[in-house]
Design a protein around this nucleic acid. Structure first.
Length: 529
RNA sequence: GGCCCCUUCGUCUAGCGGUCUAGGACACCGGCCUUUCACGCCGGUAACACGGGUUCGAGUCCCGUAGGGGUCACCA
């Protein structure tokens, strides 16, 4: 049996979106599972310049996800080139063969004329089929049409009766009536070739054994089969995946409807969270490309590729009734086309988020450090490279934060550990609530003196000191802890309070308490005891 | 409109005639834990689109209906 070869064929117009990632993943998994190759082919038949530039986010996306390609851009391979724009001679040769074999013909209809026929058919309520009125079967005819000032394209001469049958690995046996098919144009007047032709030629020349693609292509399959058979190519195994639907809808997910998705609350939440990270990095948010349906979004915000992959894997495929988590190895081992679902699955930002949390919690401290450091550097909170004591501090923050950090960019939730007392921002509301009255100011002033004498200044001793202090006064811990928190971190929420103080350190803690008290206008009380 | 496809909890799904008073996960609700936040733990609500068949027996097979969707380019 021939080596399994699959391909993913992005068009360098857009960005890699969730649906594309899934198609790519399934192709990749299938190839890896069968010890075959995964090929990346660039469908740029209709593209002009800047292909390399437009391609970069897509390739970066693949690299980030860990989906490596055996042949394609940058790695090349024995059957290249892998850009359709560089393969025109292959397509041209195929067109000649089709023409010679009588499977295609030169056509000289003007677009308006086709349009008229189409309109007439529509008016009559029947399916449109080109009359072939301007078909040139001989060179003489062609010349005659040319003299009329017409330009020739090449059309497929599709069968007019019979049935096209093929087996789809996901959907089972398929049947289409040939008479439903159009005489599609495969080559324009300027000699450039169209997608379907190029696609079939490339799939053959790249020795693709399994065409795994979105269901949108299902109805294109008969014409591609016609081309392949006319050219004498063996047919690949087809597998048409259901499309990925919009959040809380059954419509196909589209990268052109991003604005609309933003109105969906869960989607919006994911977006807002990402936007906050970006803003802290000082980057501008481009709503056209920075969107939770595009992989770039997740990469920029610091999600884990593993989470995205695992989520996407389960969008239309399941192994059994209980396995939820798969690492790459397990995915490869478990994947099969037979278990791909037929019905569309809608993209659920909340579930994706839960996978992200899960994988984040699996990370070791060093792995979290590796993930978050770049964000601190980009935000300008740390230098590049960071000094050892800053790395150590970040590691301690990470340890204290535990699962509060859900994505890499969440480290930027903790500016209080990267600024000095003078620059500490305050959450005014929290400050007022916890330190707005004379009584709490007084207590904080008194407790600060305990802190000043505490040695060693670590979480354990801080906690016992505070417990002892409230015991003596016979008050609840809530009477003091919130005030300390807001004074030292500037906020009402955050890490465990004692860990936070330990990280900030004694000197800095005392300075911050002084500043906080001064800020709320309690400076005159500082000398009291 | 023609052709084609799809239909189990809110969402992703398991189920391939009896083991289904339908299982899991996420979300949601309630409780516990708790210095905030987050986590964790325990418990709960919630689905076979509808109508006919076939069968001793149907979520599972067949046919209709309804709903949803895809596709009909000199785009890919």
């Amino acid at each position: 049996m021939a080596t399994v070869r699959t391909r993913f064929a992005p068009s360098p117009t857009g960005h890699l979106h969730i649906g594309g990632v899934r198609t790519a993943l399934y192709n990749w998994l299938f190839a890896r599972k069968h010890g075959g190759q995964f090929i990346l082919r660039i469908d740029d038949t209709d593209q002009r310049r800047h292909v390399a530039e437009a391609l970069r986010p897509i390739l970066d996306g693949f690299r980030w996800l860990g989906l490596d390609w055996d042949e394609g851009p940058e790695v090349d391979g024995p059957l290249g080139p892998y850009f359709q724009s560089q393969r025109t001679s292959h397509y041209q040769a195929a067109v000649e063969r089709l023409l010679a074999g009588g499977y295609a013909y030169r056509d000289f209809a003007r677009p308006e004329e086709i349009q008229e026929e189409r309109a007439a058919a529509e008016k009559a309520g029947i399916a449109f089929r080109y009359s072939r009125r301007w078909m040139a079967e001989t060179e003489e005819q062609a010349e005659q049409f040319r003299q009329e000032g017409r330009q020739g394209v090449v059309r497929l001469k599709m069968p007019t009766f019979g049935t096209c049958r093929f087996h789809d690995a996901v959907r089972g046996p398929m049947e289409f009536a040939w008479e439903q098919e159009q005489d599609h144009v495969i080559q324009r007047a300027d000699g450039s070739c169209l997608y379907h032709l190029a696609n079939v030629v490339d799939d053959y020349e790249f020795q693709i054994t399994h065409v795994i693609r979105a269901v949108e292509h299902l109805s294109n399959t008969p014409r591609q089969i016609f081309i392949a058979q006319s050219l004498g190519y063996p047919l690949p195994q087809y597998a048409h995946l259901p499309y990925v639907a919009e959040p809380s809808s059954q419509s196909k997910l589209s990268k052109r409807k991003l604005k609309k998705y933003l109105r969906q609350p869960d989607f919006r939440k994911l977006f807002e969270h990402g936007r906050q990270v970006l803003e802290r990095l000082g980057k501008t948010v481009d709503e056209g490309t920075f969107q939770p349906v595009l992989v770039e979004f997740y990469r920029e915000v610091g999600y884990l590729p593993q989470a995205i992959l695992n989520y996407v894997l389960l969008l239309g495929w399941a192994l059994d009734d209980k396995t939820e988590f798969f690492d790459l190895e397990q995915m490869i081992e478990s994947f099969s086309l037979e278990r791909v679902n037929k019905s569309p699955a809608s993209f659920d930002p909340v579930k994706l988020w839960s996978f992200q949390q899960h994988y984040m919690n699996q990370l070791s401290l060093d792995e979290k450090l590796e993930l978050t450091l770049p964000f601190l550097q980009q935000a300008g909170w740390l230098t590049t490279p960071p000094p050892p004591e800053q790395i150590d501090r970040t590691r301690r923050i990470l340890a204290a934060a535990g699962d509060r950090i859900k994505v890499g960019g969440d480290i930027l939730d903790y500016p209080e550990f990267y600024v000095t007392a003078e620059k500490l921002p305050y959450d005014e509301k929290a400050l007022k609530k916890r330190l707005g009255d004379a009584e709490s100011q007084q207590r904080l002033t008194e407790f600060a003196q305990v802190l000043a004498e505490l040695e060693p200044f670590d979480a354990g001793h801080l906690e016992s000191a505070m417990k002892e202090w409230i015991r003596q006064r016979d008050i609840g811990i809530g009477k003091i802890i919130h005030a300390v928190r807001v004074a030292v971190t500037g906020r009402g929420v955050g890490l465990g309070m004692f860990e936070a103080l330990e990280i900030v350190g004694k000197e800095e803690t005392l300075r911050r308490i002084d500043r906080a008290l001064a800020t709320v206008g309690a400076s005159q009380q500082i000398s009291h005891d």
